[in-house]
Amino acid sequence: MAAPGSKAGADLRDAGVVQDIKMAAYLHGQPSPLEDAKLRRPTVIEMIGKKIEYLSKEKTLNIYGSVFLGTTAGFSGILANFIFRHCFKVNHDALKTYTSLTTLPFLSTVVSYKLFVTDALCSGKISQENCVLRSSLISLVCGVLYPSALAFSKNGRLAVKYHTVPLPPKGRVLLSWLLLCQTELKAMMIPLVFQTFAGILNGLHHYAVFESTLEETERED
């Protein structure tokens, strides 16, 4: 006759075996940490791909807006330099003046547009009206006023240096030179009008493309 203690011990072992089988079956139905990582990996890769695509679109927007206005500002600088060289009858240092009047307006436009339009758009701090206003002001200031003033000062100094025009009276240099160039200065109305419209259209387009890109990215996320 079996002892009661032996029978109780056997029952306990049987119960433990059954419990181990149930636990193994439960764990078999649940994904392991390794399987979990394998399942999450494609999702993470997809999210990273979407972020890279968004950043590339953002970079394209920055290049499109700033380089377009910078290029038109460079052409305005060339026109301004040609006008003032003709007014002051300057024939010296042509390469030097044309190089500076092309590169400086271009660089100032690109940097200003990135700081005041593209970065502000990416941070969500400006509205559509503000974006258009900033774009048009940058186009006007960096694309017309700055190259005109730069060409006026550079060629004026060359005129004084090489005595290509009579020296104006002391205290009336600016007024005399403006009177000398007043007829040719009317030609700068062409880039003035063009740069204003280019800034407005570029700001509208940049904001619209940015909004559509942002909505598409949020919808995919």
Rank of each mutant, 00 (worst) to 15 (best):
N130P: 04
N130S: 02
N130G: 08
C131L: 09
C131P: 12
V132G: 06
L133D: 10
L133V: 03
R134M: 15
R134S: 15
R134E: 14
S135F: 07
S135W: 07
S136N: 04
L137T: 07
L137F: 11
I138T: 08
S139C: 02
S139W: 00
S139A: 06
L140K: 07
L140W: 15
V141M: 10
G143W: 01
G143T: 01
V144L: 14
V144P: 08
V144D: 10
V144C: 12
L145Q: 05
L145R: 01
L145A: 10
L145K: 03
P147R: 01
P147I: 01
S148D: 08
S148P: 07
S148E: 12
S148L: 14
A149F: 14
A149P: 10
A149H: 10
A149D: 09
L150S: 12
L150I: 08
A151P: 09
A151I: 04
A151M: 02
A151Y: 02
F152G: 06
F152D: 05
K154D: 12
N155R: 03
G156W: 00
G156Q: 03
R157I: 06
R157N: 14
R157F: 05
L158R: 08
L158Q: 10
L158S: 13
L158D: 15
A159E: 15
V160P: 00
K161W: 13
K161Q: 11
K161R: 09
Y162S: 03
H163A: 01
T164Y: 03
T164F: 08
T164S: 15
T164C: 11
V165G: 10
P166G: 03
P168Q: 04
P168R: 07
P169E: 09
G171V: 06
G171M: 09
R172V: 00
L174Y: 05
L175A: 05
S176M: 07
S176T: 01
S176W: 01
S176F: 05
S176K: 01
W177S: 07
L178T: 09
L178H: 05
L179I: 11
L180S: 05
L180H: 04
L180K: 03
C181A: 13
C181D: 11
Q182D: 12
Q182S: 13
T183P: 00
E184G: 00
E184W: 01
L185R: 00
M188S: 04
M188D: 06
M188I: 06
M188W: 00
I190C: 01
I190T: 09
I190R: 00
I190W: 10
I190Q: 07
I190H: 04
P191F: 02
L192T: 01
L192M: 11
V193D: 08
F194V: 14
F194R: 12
F194P: 05
Q195W: 10
Q195P: 05
Q195L: 03
Q195A: 08
Q195K: 08
T196F: 15
F197M: 15
F197N: 04
A198M: 05
A198P: 02
G199V: 03
G199P: 03
G199M: 02
I200E: 13
L201S: 10
L201Q: 06
N202A: 14
N202T: 04
N202S: 15
N202Q: 14
G203Y: 12
G203W: 11
L204E: 15
L204W: 06
H205Y: 14
H205D: 10
H206W: 07
H206T: 13
Y207H: 06
Y207L: 03
Y207A: 04
Y207N: 07
